[in-house]
């Protein structure tokens, strides 16, 4: 099933080997039937951990239960998850241009009206809204990941026009990319000294510490997601032939 990895653009949608077709229909149907029987038959654990979480939410420093789970009860998972994001960034980032500046603005003579309008009007609004999401994450839906994703979306918009370029391999970018992990680990281990156990927030500061971690996480996630996107764009713009084709179009 993975023996041939097809990347021909115009290839047919489906492998023509009948065996894998039949087998996968059978397996998928079996899976579906079995699991649906489970769902229908089993009452299961009715409330999960909801009561326990509502009991302890007072002690977590935030009032939004999802944020409480993500950054307090199961903060270790979130830490490792940020590490997953870092893995992919490391795998994808180009390794050249270490000393080029972090942020560059290119003055382009030919302007795309729609894009520049979007940049001028929508991007600041998105930034403000992301800040709001981050701040609101403590007590209502929102948080670091959502804010980071929004900011990354705004930066995707920025790169569409080639007006702004961020060099993701500059020292500044690298520091910002690992910022959340560093802050997370530092706070986590420092708390061993103060509180006796990893990532045990003291009650008085937990809200503040969570906000600090979330802010750093937003920065890192924004940069990580934006760098993932730009890795598909940059090499296209640098290659000369592709640019030619573009101008023809």
């Amino acid at each position: 099933m993975f023996n041939t990895l097809n990347i021909e653009y115009d290839s047919p949608a489906v492998d023509k080997s009948a065996l894998s077709l039949i087998a996968s229909v059978l397996v998928a149907g079996f899976l579906l039937a079995v699991t649906i029987t489970i769902v229908l038959s089993d009452k299961g654990h009715n409330t999960g951990l909801a009561p326990l979480i509502t009991q302890n939410i007072e002690l977590s420093g935030v009032t939004n239960p999802v944020t409480a789970v993500l950054l307090n009860f199961r903060a270790y998972d979130t830490l490792l998850e940020i590490a997953v994001l870092l893995v992919v960034v490391l795998a994808i980032l180009p390794t050249r241009d270490h000393h080029a500046p972090f942020f560059k603005r290119i003055v382009v003579s030919k302007k795309n009206l729609v894009l520049s309008a979007l940049q001028r009007w929508i991007a600041p609004a998105v930034v403000v809204f992301a800040g709001y999401l981050l701040w609101a994450g403590a007590h209502q839906p929102g948080g670091a990941f959502q804010a980071g994703a929004l900011l990354a979306g705004a930066s995707v918009l920025m790169f569409q026009s080639d007006t702004y370029q961020v060099n993701y391999t500059s020292l500044m970018a690298r520091v910002l990319l690992v910022l959340s992990l560093v802050v997370f680990i530092t706070i986590g281990t420092a708390l061993i000294y103060f509180e006796g156990s990893l990532l045990t927030y003291p009650l008085a500061f937990s809200g503040l510490l969570i906000l600090l971690i979330e802010t750093c996480a937003t920065v890192s996630i924004t940069l990580a997601l934006a760098s993932l996107y730009s890795s598909f764009i940059v090499s296209e713009n640098t290659s000369v032939t592709d640019n030619k084709h573009r101008t023809i179009k």
């Binding site: 999802v66 948080g143 959502q146 929004l150």
Partner: peptide
Amino acid sequence: DVAIAEAAIGAG
């Protein structure tokens, strides 16, 4: 929370 994240990350 998940809906916002899905719209922003999963779809966007």
